[in-house]
């Protein structure tokens, strides 16, 4: 079952072609990592696929109305905005908004989803604390819990693990894997190629104005592509503790694609 499908997606912003001819499908049970150097258009790609900005080509999510889309996909933007000093629980409950009937209070099911999301992100201890007073990493986890509480089949997150400590980075990626095991899918942009190689079932590499590669990490992260797109060398090995991937050196910084 396809949870999202984009074909020939292209975006021009202020007369600059960000990318063009991007096509891919995401089915059930996938953790898809979206990688690419700064300025390659990862955020733009996700926003276009959601239909939040003008784009060429088609995206199945953008074709849904705003209401059905909010039940099909949840979106965690890169800017971690928490405008008001609400409690963690209140913030996570915001994820249930698309499911509430007009002028009705959250049901027992909504509360159950919120509890579940809080449990998954291990936020029980800070449930009643004020979200704006948490540390940046803690706020990121609260916002991930909000996205989880939305309970959509597909979750899109823009660099959700940036700024988290290693344990929470790994825990978050494992949470995504648990969602995938439940038949949901995640599209997550990230810069840590090691975590992408270890935790993503599939990697999309964006660069040079288009989709460079799409497939399992070991097929996508070839030395040639890393040199061409990221200008780095890396060490990669499938060890008995899973795939280990370590970027090593920068190759003489040429003009980059962004």
């Amino acid at each position: 079952m396809s949870l999202m499908s984009v074909s020939n997606l292209s975006v021009r912003l202020r007369n600059r072609q960000i990318f063009s001819d991007v096509s891919f499908d995401i089915g059930a049970g996938e953790v898809v990592g979206l990688i690419g150097p700064n300025g390659a258009g990862k955020t733009t790609l996700m926003r276009a696929a959601l239909g939040l900005i003008e784009h060429g080509g088609t995206s199945s999510l953008a074709q849904l109305g705003a209401g059905p889309r909010a039940k099909a996909v949840s979106w965690m933007p890169q800017s971690r905005e928490i405008a008001w000093p609400v409690s963690v629980e209140t913030l996570v409950m915001l994820g249930r908004l698309p499911h509430l009937d007009p002028y009705s209070r959250p049901t027992a099911q909504d509360h159950a989803r919120v509890d579940e999301a809080i449990g998954w992100m291990e936020l029980e201890g800070m449930r009643h604390r004020t979200a704006t007073r948490l540390s940046g990493g803690e706020q990121a986890r609260v916002l991930i819990a909000r996205v989880l509480a939305q309970g959509t089949p597909l979750l899109m997150a823009d660099e959700p693990i940036a700024g988290l400590d290693p344990a929470n980075q790994i825990a978050t990626m494992e949470t995504f894997a648990r969602l995938a095991a439940l038949g949901k899918s995640v599209l997550v942009s990230l810069h840590d190629l090691g975590l992408a190689a270890r935790h993503c079932t599939r990697v999309l590499m964006l660069g040079q104005g288009g989709l460079v590669a799409d497939g399992p990490a070991e097929k996508v992260l070839t030395p040639e592509r890393l040199a061409e797109i990221f200008h780095i060398t890396a060490w990669y090995q499938n060890t008995d503790q899973g795939p280990v991937y370590q970027p090593l050196d920068v190759i003489g910084r040429g003009p980059r694609s962004g």
């Binding site: 939040l52 705003a66 949840s74 979106w75 405008a83 913030l91 915001l94 908004l97 698309p98």
Partner: peptide, 20 residues
């Protein structure tokens, strides 16, 4: 009221939650 609640998370997140 609800749209303002969603806006707590920023305009992008609110739009993706169905707020026009």
């Amino acid at each position: 009221g609800r749209s303002l609640g969603a806006l707590t998370l920023g305009e992008d997140a609110a739009a993706a939650m169905g707020v026009s």
